[in-house]
Design a protein around this nucleic acid. Structure first.
Lengths: 243, 243
DNA sequence: CGCTTTGTTGAACGGGTTCAATTCGCGTGG
DNA sequence: CCACGCGAATTGAACCCGTTCAACAAAGCG
């Protein structure tokens, strides 16, 4: 895959139009490609000097473990996403990161990243933009956990994932591959896996969506949007905002 | 107050040591001081080309309204905090912002901000750092809403606020002024105001903390930290990380 | 082919909500 | 100075969404 078509460039290019030298730097970041097996932490909470990664293939989730034993998944990352940027900036990981399936990712050193910011300020702006976009996603999930019921949460999460996957060409209008288990969904949405199961059945029987064998299919997109209060605009970008 | 002692400089300086020209730019941002009355939105969801602000005095909250009528408060901002940065970057506000009491804030234009990034890349880095710190706070609240019960949520929020207020010199070791109502707490923590009231009573009767007449007092800090699973480190910075 | 992980279903329980009513604190005007 | 009004705080009782415990089925994998 050429650098122009990599998921990362596709994403950052949506915020800031990138020039040759900037593309070169990003190309350099794409070296050091490594493979990680699923269920083995890439970063663990409390780790010092953790690495950041650019995810090239496969999904990972970032989460926190509570003393009580519970787990809260903060988000799912898909190809093109930065992983662990915050942890790198703060020198200590404030959350763990685990592949959901076998993944490929490029390691990015703090020094290289901050160095690139000095050379190409526009890159810093693009990354700030990307980080803000990630925050918008976390905020939207916060709203889900705070004020939406179980069915609304599930519908909203799948719509969010669909929108993000479409951006990097990994989802069609009504369907996408989704490698997460019902336990993942439970830990992401603040519910029990048992209840997730029941809600998925209801959504299926109501003709809203089907999640089976790692594939999500929207059976009635309009009603899903209506049910979950999903804002169709919130992950839509119409060309670079900084030229 | 000199620019060196403003809450904003105090905060950004914790991430990146700032040079003269950088301080000058920040000083310029501090012009345009405006006053806002409480309960009147400074920014409303969906607003196009909203302004960003640097909060100088008083508290505000940012929130989203759901079609169902419910409200989810995403966070409370205190003096020194950036407000609406994300909305400015995306040209459209994805949340509303409302003063909790009468506040003073300086307006910051997108153009000036992005311009400053070109001139002073270190400033872009500092703002990225600050934004990452804000995200860490949102993530921690996400964990609360997902996996902590009502008493843990309340305790954790007050400990978080205390840590942030201490950074800008607005809290003592065991007490701080907190202008929010029980309705604010409910909307921030995904609970009903009625339940917040009961939980506050329990915390008080158990000798853990007292919230009365706009003042929070920690009656037993250690047990509060233990109860809520608060990470004492997560808002602690030990000097600039970029010199 | 056996074992582990994931998915599925039933029944009892419980934390938190909702509805309804009362009280407190405090600024405002008579 | 007191009556009034209004938002915020309190309390009680019934209800419900989602949990927990327990069991079993299905799918994936070495």
């Amino acid at each position: 895959m050429s650098i122009q078509n990599s998921p990362l460039v596709r994403k950052l290019g949506a915020y800031v139009s990138l020039s040759e030298p900037e593309l070169e730097i990003l190309a350099k970041f794409h070296k050091n490609r490594r493979t990680f097996a699923d269920k083995i932490e890439m970063v663990y909470e409390g780790q010092s000097s953790p690495s950041a990664f650019i995810l090239a293939k496969g999904w990972v989730c970032s989460y926190k473990i509570l003393r009580s034993g519970g787990r809260q998944i903060v988000g799912f990352q898909i190809p093109g996403d930065f992983i662990g940027l915050r942890s790198v900036l703060f020198r200590t990981a404030d959350h763990s990161i685990e592949p959901i399936q076998k993944v490929e990712a490029s390691e990015v050193k703090v020094k290289d990243l901050l160095g690139a910011f000095q050379t190409c300020p526009r890159l810093a702006t693009a990354v700030l933009w990307s980080a803000s976009s990630d925050e918008a996603i976390v905020v939207e999930r916060l709203v889900s956990l705070g004020r939406r019921d179980a069915a609304e949460r599930v519908a909203h999460l799948f719509l969010e994932l669909s929108a993000r996957l479409k951006l990097v060409g990994l989802a069609s209008a009504t369907s996408f591959e989704c490698p997460v288990s019902q336990y993942h969904l439970a830990d992401a949405l603040g519910l029990s896996a048992i209840h997730i199961n029941r809600v998925l059945r209801e959504l299926r029987e109501d003709g809203l969506l089907t999640f089976r064998r790692g594939v999500v299919t929207f059976d009635d997109l309009d009603r899903l949007v209506e049910l979950s209060g999903f804002d169709r605009a919130y992950l839509d970008y119409e060309g670079p905002m900084l030229n």
